[in-house]
Each structure stands twice: as structure tokens, then as C-alpha cells.
Design a protein around this nucleic acid. Structure first.
Length: 208
DNA sequence: CTATTGATGGTC
DNA sequence: ACCATCAATAGG
């Protein structure tokens, strides 16, 4: 297996494993589903960190009030208006980073938030990778990775094992209650039998 | 220039 | 339930 060469294999020894731009050039919800089971990879020097994506959320465009692009074209959202297959990384609450992949054709501002991965390689035992902030912390993903092209940079996604439809869970996105009717859209997807899916705060549990 | 606000997560 | 902590955004 390639793993036996970890640490001595130059970056881009296996460029073919990268998902092509055509993978990302589709509606965000389609990409969010297709990303389940794929591998997020970050090569930093001799280190390679890999996680199997088990939870995603789709932000489908400017009309989606939960999507940052609903603010229009700004310096922050510009990358979402650009070509598909780029990274959109932002800082939230002053301390956590969130990693997204840009989807759809240029001009359509949509993205998929990667909310959780299962450790596959290069991640210290016990380090949690459930939750968008925790997985970025584990990988070392920061604003320095914003706008990177996933098909030509050390940060990319490669094909993984298929996830059968029966194993896909679906529900409302987390933390977007401000988005009115869009908060209820079931644009969050996860692998049902994974222990590494983030624990979603229960909505609707609030009593008057 | 100042004010507000989070695609969160840890702690109480 | 509280809150740490700052980039981006809206508004003056």
C-alpha cells in the first residue's frame, strides 16, 4: 500500500487521485452528498494528514440566507463566486476556522462546509475531528489556506469508498437559526454509522 | 472611525 | 447557559 511510503513520497506522486473540477462543478447539495466517504488530504512538508469525510452541509447560493454569499460579492465571499474546487476558509467566533469547498460554475456562489471527518492517517490518536472547528484545528487549516485550488495545492480531496444511500442521514444545518425559512432546509448530510459525526445541538427542544 | 455579529466549542 | 475573541461587515 502507499501508506508504507508515507513520509518519503513527494507531493503529487498520485495526482490522479484528486477529484477533478467536474466533481465540484455541480449543485452544492449534490457535491455535499458525493463528498461523503471521500478523503480530505493536507500535505505539509513531510506530513500527510488524511480524514474520511462523514458530515457535510450545503450552502446553495446567494438566495440561501444561511449562505455567506447572501451578503453579496464582498472580499470575503469573492472566492465562492469564483471557479469550483477552491477552498473557502473563514474564521468564526474569533477562534475557530471552518473549511468549505466551492461548488458550481463561476458566478454561482455556493459551497459545502465539511463538518466532520474520521481520522485515516497522520492525525494524533485522541485528537477529535468531529465539528468544523475541531477538524480544522486537527489538520492545521487556517486563513492561510483560503482560496487554495484543491486540484493543484497541498490541500485536496481524493476519492474514497462509496457510501450507500441507506447509510446517509439528513437534517437541518447547524447554527443558522437566523436564516428564517432556510434554517429548516435539510441540507446537512452525514454517514449514519460513523462515530465521528458531530453532535448536533438539538433544535426544537426548547420549551416556551 | 465605531458597532454588531457569528457555518463553534469548551466550560459551568 | 455562559462566554472567549476577532475578521468581516454595516453604518456614520
Amino acid at each position: 500500500m502507499a501508506e508504507t511510503l508515507t513520509g518519503v513520497v513527494p507531493p503529487d506522486t498520485f495526482p490522479a487521485v484528486r477529484l477533478p473540477e467536474s466533481f465540484y462543478a455541480r449543485p452544492a447539495l449534490t457535491v455535499a452528498r458525493a463528498l461523503l466517504g471521500t478523503h480530505l488530504v493536507l500535505e505539509a512538508g513531510r506530513e500527510r494528514r488524511v480524514g474520511r469525510i462523514v458530515e457535510t452541509e450545503a450552502y446553495i447560493g446567494e438566495h440561501d440566507l444561511a449562505c455567506h454569499a447572501a451578503k453579496g460579492l464582498t472580499p470575503r465571499t469573492e472566492v465562492m463566486f469564483g471557479p469550483p474546487g477552491r477552498a473557502y476558509v473563514y474564521l468564526i467566533y474569533g477562534m475557530h476556522h471552518c473549511f468549505n469547498v466551492v461548488t458550481e460554475a463561476p458566478g454561482v456562489a455556493a459551497a459545502v462546509l465539511v463538518r466532520a471527518v474520521e481520522p485515516v492517517e497522520g492525525l494524533a490518536p485522541g485528537v477529535r475531528t468531529d465539528g468544523p472547528g475541531r477538524l480544522c484545528r486537527a489538520f492545521g487549516i487556517t486563513l492561510a489556506h483560503n482560496r487554495l485550488d484543491l486540484k493543484s495545492s497541498p490541500l485536496y480531496v481524493r476519492a474514497g469508498e462509496e457510501v450507500a444511500e441507506a447509510r446517509v442521514g439528513r437534517g437541518p444545518r447547524i447554527g443558522v437559526e437566523y436564516a428564517g425559512p432556510w434554517a429548516d432546509e435539510p441540507f446537512r448530510l452525514w454517514v449514519k454509522d460513523s462515530r465521528h459525526v458531530s453532535k448536533a445541538p438539538s433544535r426544537g427542544g426548547r420549551r416556551p
